[in-house]
Every structure is written in C-alpha cells, then in structure tokens.
Design a protein around this nucleic acid. Structure first.
Lengths: 240, 240
DNA sequence: CGCTGCTTTGAAGCCCTTCAAACCAGGTGG
DNA sequence: CCACCTGGTTTGAAGGGCTTCAAAGCAGCG
C-alpha cells in the first residue's frame, strides 16, 4: 500500500524495519478521491496529512482574477501536504488532477513519530525541504526559462520522480494531464503550450499524447531544459 | 544579538525562556561578510546553518547561460539555510547582497536541540516550511502576475517581513538593492524594472529611490499586487 | 451520431526584451 | 575643487515571445 512511499524515502535515506512499521501503523484507511477534486483549501485547520498512493495531485494558488498557478505536482509516494503538520493550515489549495487513492496520516500520529523516532522525524523534515527545493527549481523555470525549456524541464523532472517509484522507464511514463493543466504549471497559456509541444515533437525530443510522455532523446531533452537532477537530492554525499 | 530572530519566532509561536537560552547557546561568534559575497554554493557539504543578524542575503540559482534567479530574500532574523540541516548540501547558492552580520549554528547544536527541545524543533521545522510558502508565493508571482504586480507584491512582502523585526514602519523601509537585483528576484530585465518603478511612482503607490522604499498608498499597493499576507503565517489560528 | 472536452491552427496585438546611449550621483585623485 | 571615473538609473527605438481571440478539428462516449 505505502510501498511507493517507502521507495521514495529509501531513495534518499535508510529506513529501518522499525521505522517502516511506525509509518504503516500511522496511516488510516485507503480513500478514493475523484478527479478534479479540491480537498484542501487555504486557511482550513488540518489535523492530518495526505499521502498519495496513486494518481496525480497538485498544489495550487489562485489570483483574485481567477488565474491559477500550480506550484507542485505530486505523484504516488508523495505527501501532498506534510507541511501542514507544522503549519496547521495552508496558504494554498490541493486538488486531484486524476482520480486518486490516498491515505491519511493524523498529525497526532506524526507527533508521536517525532517523539519516538528522531531519525524518521528528520527524514520527514527532509521531505518538506525537498518540496521546497522543487519549488525553487520551478521559480527558476518560471522566472528565467523560455516556454520550450520549461516544458522540457517539467518532463525531465517527472521522469526522474516517477522512475523512483517505478512508474517511469527511461523513455516512457503516464502523465494523464491536459495541456491546460500543464499551462497552469508552467505560467503559460494552453494555446502556447500546444504550440511548444509541437515544436518539441518536431525536434524529436519528446512527445506528449493522450496523457503519455514518450522521450525520444533524453540527453537532448535535458540539454534543452538545462536539467540537472541534483535538486531532487538523490545523491547521498555522506552517510550519517 | 539574536533579538530579531526571536522577534521573528515569537511572531508565530511562543518561545520559552529555556528555549531562548538553548538558541543563544547554540550560536557561535558574530561574523561580518562583505557585500556581493557568495558563501554557500550548490553541492557543498555543510555542517552549520547561517542566521542573518543584519543586511540582506539572497538564495539564488543560475542557468548555464549565466541567467540568475533569486528564489528568496533574507533579512535580519532569518536563517538563510536552515534547510541545510536536513539536506546536508544545497541545490542553490546563498550570497550577501549588502554587507551582512551573521552567526553560525552548527548542525551538531541543531541536532541536540531536536533531541532535547521537541517544541523548538517543530518551530524550526515550521521555519523551513515558511520559506517554502514564500517560494510558492513567488512561483505565483513569476507565473501569473504582471511586471507591475510582481514589483508591488515584493514591496508588500518585504514591508511585512521587515516590520516583524522592527525594520519597517507603515510607510518606510530600507531595501538597499539595485534595480538589477530586483530584476533577478522578479524574472524581469533591469530595464523593465526601471520602467515599472516609474509607473508605480507616477501612480502614487510606491517610490523606490537610493535603496529606500516609501509606500505612498499601502492599500492601493496591496490591491495592485493582489497581496494577501496569510502566506506569511502571522495568524495563529489555535494555540497548541 | 451528435455531444463534449480537448487539441490544433491562424491572425493580430501587446508586454517585455534587446540594444544602445545618455544621464546622474558618489567617490577619487590631480 | 573640479575633472574624471564608475556603477547605477533612465530613456528611446525596434523586435520577439507569448497572449488573446476566434474557430476548426478531433477523439471518446452516451
């Protein structure tokens, strides 16, 4: 059930059998959420965090004129809102983009983990810092990368993140999003996303069709995007 | 010495005298850094975090073509890199924009805090999550706000953050940055920042001259920016 | 088989960039 | 005490990347 979450954690640190057991004990029952469903809104007091088992989930912020910016995509194995444990309420919304399976971890259970499992606490603190690192990389994309670079970069990021949890190969993965949703991730209009996808296709770098990404030239795509995966913290520099 | 740091913490949570003492005991000597000095580079293993006492510090990321995006500004009272405690190395650089006074907190000392002061641990975890919230708001600015809105928003944010630590009044604060640095925060060119600053001045919303911000119309400025300070988590919804 | 939501394409326009140069203030040295 | 230098600011003109508006094409589905 939480296998993908464990895969994600173990890609960055050792997780003992004890710790694994603590995690398993902390989560509730599996819940199915429909697509396009906003299940966290800004300012609402929260008493649990949401672990994604399946499907794609987005954090987003709205402007008062209705414009929307997605600030991070979440996939199987991710907590969508682990930061609500310390923040209590969030500054953004969280919604499903596809139908999704989730489990909830009560903040009470998280509090117990922080009392009894100091290493696991640091692993989860690390987890929220990894989300922040992804935010920073998106700031760089939104601020300085061209449209074609932004799209290429997003496809590179998702390939790495999905690969960790066994949902991507070197060349393929499912990403069942519309071009309008991509536009909301990338600070672009749907029309322009469409045009740039065509460019990427014609440059034989990557194809995005019916919710599936096919990478035609991984190195070329990474070069186009100026993609450096180190912000995903998969390299362990030194064991503690 | 760390008074502004305590002001920042106490704006969001209670800090006991014991905890205050623990913080004071954890920091080393005051160090002066010159302006324009990059003191943290990506990938470098770190054994301490940096608390800013004075001056302005920036986190930034570079593209290989030399373009730079500042991902967050830090002011007196902020940790510039508290997240390095769990991350060990960073995905970005950190530099002084002005001469700065800092103190270092060894990760060893932070580790002891996490063992002996569970509440203070959560306060610091909260602190890194607050940085992430600022990153998200900047993603929204970079992705969806116009140039004039971005600048207005940054001035609103800095007014609130500096006010907390006693460095801003309702209408004035020092922000000794060049227009080129603002451009690197906002994903714009220096030329365009200049033009938009003129617009804001002529609209009688805000003036930025010789490193000082004068807000002429706070409500108008906030309306222009679609500024909502709740992402800075100054509202305590419920005591724990 | 027509509806619905998504994708694709075209044409026009604007926001911001690029390139270039003038302006200005503060600091330095003759 | 002014001439000079330097880094930052300001302004102009031209261009381009992305948006806007509009409509056609297309695939899945009841």
């Amino acid at each position: 059930m939480i296998e993908k979450h464990l895969l994600k954690l173990r890609a960055r640190d050792e997780i003992s059998a004890d710790e694994e057991q603590a995690i398993r004990a902390a989560v509730g029952e599996t819940v199915m959420l429909p697509a396009e469903h906003t299940f966290i809104t800004p300012g609402k007091l929260l008493d649990h965090s949401t672990l994604v088992l399946d499907g794609i989930v987005a954090r987003y912020k709205d402007l008062s004129d209705g414009q929307r910016q997605i600030t991070e995509l979440h996939v199987a194995g991710d907590f969508a809102d682990l930061h609500s444990f310390t923040l209590q309420y969030l500054d953004h919304s969280v919604m499903t983009l596809t139908p999704a399976r989730i489990v909830r971890m009560p903040h009470k259970a998280l509090a117990e983990i922080t009392e009894r499992y100091p290493h696991l606490t640091r692993v989860y603190w690390f987890g929220t810092n990894l989300d922040a690192a992804i935010h920073r990389e998106w700031e760089l994309s939104l601020g300085r990368r061209s449209a074609i670079q932004r799209i290429a970069h997003l496809f590179c990021e998702m390939q790495v993140r999905l690969r960790i949890v066994g949902l991507a190969s070197e060349r393929h993965y499912d990403l069942p999003l519309t071009q309008a949703v991509l536009a909301e991730c990338l600070g672009l209009t749907p029309v322009h996303v469409n045009r740039v996808l065509k460019e990427l296709r014609e440059a034989a770098l990557v194809e995005f069709r019916s919710g599936r990404v096919t990478i035609l030239d991984l190195l070329g795509l990474r070069a186009m995007a100026d993609f450096d995966p180190s912000y995903l913290y998969l390299e362990r520099k030194r064991p503690r």
